[in-house]
Write a protein that binds this DNA or RNA. Structure first.
Lengths: 236, 236
DNA sequence: GGGCACAATATTGTATACAACTTCGCGGAG
DNA sequence: CTCCGCGAAGTTGTATACAATATTGTGCCC
């Protein structure tokens, strides 16, 4: 079976243009080039990508459905700012879904799958070495998607994709450690265990990996409210 | 906290018109008034709802994202026809998510919540008594959403909503018993246990309820392929 | 009579024009 | 000086016009 979704989050050039734009913006969010709260003006985007607002609106709608973007009627689209509660929920959901997919992946992974995962990790290391922080962040999330994909449960994989995209926003808002990227050794370990076809350990390791990530967040409602301008500059 | 989503799947009249249409179509699918595979012409819908194609297209896009509708580029939108594999996945995902929400609901349900659930069941019975098969089918699914809502995990609730919508299509395609609606006694039992604040039993009962539903399906790939015309009339 | 090519029709995709709404700035009244 | 209201500018929402693509129908050729 051929994976229906492009593994690099890049639309083929002959695809629907709105999907191309949605992916480009999505990627910019993943890589923390677009901060939570950033305004996404329609004319501006239309100009950047050389299409009409019609297309841009379709793309924004897609992103809104994935909860990466907030569309306020008559007031425009903004990169989403998950509340602490939402952030909590995203990770709880991941902790529910991903251990299961890790287990399934350990059961089903082919040699080719494992090869792909290893290549993925190599790219991740490479990006970090090159100082491409954004790229590493993005790839780090995508590894989780790749693992879910091996489990061959498209429905759950789609959920996970959506959760990982939102995790990017959560990390941008609430990460307390500077580099809250998945530590590489964690990912190395995961892939090794999948290669070893050890479902129980894969499940457990994924769970603990997610708990680690979760606990690296600072979700105190008091410190980080959904950062509005008033809030940021309120002291003055 | 006020529930942000309308519990009756009906958009307020002052809301965005595309959401109104999306909900109307969604409901028609829920109630099996729109069969899987039905073509959803843009002009036709625009005419029915008295809006321009712009709005209709937005609505169709929303439905496509929920996987209730399949949009084939340049060829139109059709009510989705989940494959047996997809059907399987939908129920597996439900079996993973819903027992958890049932547990949580049993822990958190207020008296008002329980009252709402009971009223919901009453409406369900009522619809059946009136012979409103479609309405009963719809309400039956919505009860699961209501329970998820009590768990107050919006992220997971959204997933479940999406899964239940798709379940409607799955039932339309693969149900082997005539009335594959959740049996009322099953729902009665669920609500009772939630009222009794018994999380363990709630979790177990939801799980077995879903397994029941799942096993009422005939997912043999040979018998029910995604019904295309060729397939239906192939014998001639 | 069957099959293929081409024209006619219908439907979807995109851009643009216009309407509605929000926001910002100005000016006057208190 | 502050506050309210009004108007201008800018942005989003919707409808429509046009372009591109798929589908259907017709007629010619074999």
């Amino acid at each position: 079976m051929i994976h229906p979704i492009s593994p690099v989050l890049q639309a083929p050039s002959d695809a629907a243009p709105d999907k191309t734009i949605a992916m480009a913006v999505s990627r910019a969010i993943h890589e923390h080039r677009l901060a939570p709260g950033a305004k996404l003006g329609e004319d501006e985007l239309a100009d950047v990508y050389g299409v009409s607002r019609t297309i841009v609106r379709a793309a924004l709608r897609t992103l809104a459905h994935e909860q990466l973007v907030n569309i306020k009627r008559n007031r425009g689209a903004y990169v989403a700012q998950p509340s602490p509660k939402e952030a909590q929920e995203v990770f709880e959901a991941r902790e529910l879904l991903e251990p299961r997919t890790a287990r399934e992946a350990a059961l089903r992974a082919t040699a080719a799958d494992v090869r792909r995962l290893k290549m993925h990790i190599a790219k991740e290391h490479d990006a970090l070495d090159r100082g491409d922080h954004g790229g590493a962040l993005f790839l780090s999330g995508q590894l989780h998607v790749e693992i879910a994909r091996i489990a061959a449960q498209d429905t759950i994989t789609n959920f996970i994709e959506s959760l990982i995209a939102r995790s990017s926003l959560v990390v941008a808002l609430y990460s307390r450690r500077e580099s809250a990227i998945c530590e590489h050794h964690a990912h190395d370990g995961l892939v090794e265990i999948i290669e070893a076809r050890n479902p129980d350990e894969a499940e457990a390791l994924m769970k603990s990996h997610l708990v680690d990530l979760h606990s690296a967040l600072n979700l105190e409602a008091t410190t980080h409210a959904p950062r509005s301008l008033k809030d940021v500059l309120g002291g003055l």
